[in-house]
């Protein structure tokens, strides 16, 4: 018969609300990177829950595979895709949000109510006897005996997924990459000669030459082309006006 020790109860009551809050935060934060970090925290919490529940192997796998590999993959793709309007939290489909929240609350309520009502017909058993020779050994015995066939199938699935990802990510070039010569011709044949000499560098003619500060045109206005589009979309562009000198010292001091 399973008895739950006090340390586990303490751990649960501390970590469980934090995990739920982190999950809620995932929905509410604006930046996807923050969502990913909160999710990583929920996963680590779950790993701790697994270990606490005598699933040592799964707990380690949760940390290594999920938190380590999968979440890093998510972050990696986030960096690749960059930032755009999809991060906005305003709802564009009318009526969807109230429906979704009402439905989800009803769903959660019913689920919790069902769990509360359910009975197994026996008390909690605990894994002390099943884990007798150690959790990893017992799992291995099951995996390579009863579940050997699903295990093999899953390995095939992994290979297929790897191949699928390669196929999807493979980009077939249909036209030759333009040479420098062709690019130069295109610049000069373009609508305007404004960019014929190349785009202006950021920070030129300014007191600040960081990449997030637009260059100034001769009339003193900011040159939009001088900043990377990603920085602009993310709102990370600084206003070059803040670096203007309040007063220019025009006096020429002659050195003696």
């Amino acid at each position: 018969m399973l008895t739950i020790q006090t340390p586990e109860a303490v751990m649960f009551w501390v970590l469980a609300p934090v995990a739920v809050l982190a999950a809620l935060g995932m929905l509410l934060v604006k930046k996807a990177v923050h969502s990913a970090l909160l999710l990583a925290w929920v996963m680590i919490t779950l790993a701790i829950f697994y270990i606490a529940q005598d699933a040592l192997f799964l707990g380690i796998v949760q940390i290594v595979v999920y938190t380590g590999a999968v979440m890093m993959l998510f972050l990696f793709i986030l960096m690749l895709v960059g930032v755009d309007a999809s991060d906005s939290l305003t709802e564009t489909i009318p009526g969807l949000r109230p429906i979704a929240i009402t439905a989800a609350v009803g769903f959660g309520g019913l689920l919790v109510s069902l769990i509360g009502r359910a009975t197994l017909g026996h008390g909690a058993v605990g894994l002390d006897s099943a884990n007798g020779a150690g959790n990893v050994q017992a799992l291995a015995k099951l995996l390579f005996s009863t579940y050997v066939w699903p295990f093999e199938v899953v390995s095939a699935l992994l290979i297929t997924a790897a191949l699928g990802a390669m196929v999807l990510a493979h980009h077939q070039r249909t036209v030759a990459r333009p040479t420098q010569r062709e690019q130069a011709i295109a610049r000069f044949r373009g609508d305007s000669l404004g960019s014929a000499a190349g785009l202006p560098n950021p920070g030129v003619f300014a007191r600040h030459n960081a990449v997030d500060v637009p260059a100034l045109l001769p009339d003193g206005s900011a040159a939009p082309n001088s900043i990377s589009a990603t920085l602009k979309a993310r709102g990370d562009m600084l206003d070059s006006a803040q670096f203007e000198l309040g007063e220019v010292d025009n006096t020429v001091t002659e050195e003696k």
Binding site: L2, Q53, D54, A55, F57, L58, V61, Q62, V65, Y66, A69, V70, L73, F74, L120, A124, V125, G126, L127, S129, A130, N131, N135, A138, L139, L142, L143, T146, Y147, P150, F151, V154, L157, L158, T160, A161, A162, G164, A165, L168
Partner: peptide, 25 residues
């Protein structure tokens, strides 16, 4: 844990593998 057998853990393990595949694709 409640049932005292490790089959649930094995299935959870498989779920993780499948989830990893899903994430990749």
């Amino acid at each position: 844990r409640i049932n005292g057998t490790l089959d649930g853990q094995v299935v959870a393990f498989f779920t993780m593998v499948v989830a990893a595949c899903e994430v990749v694709v």
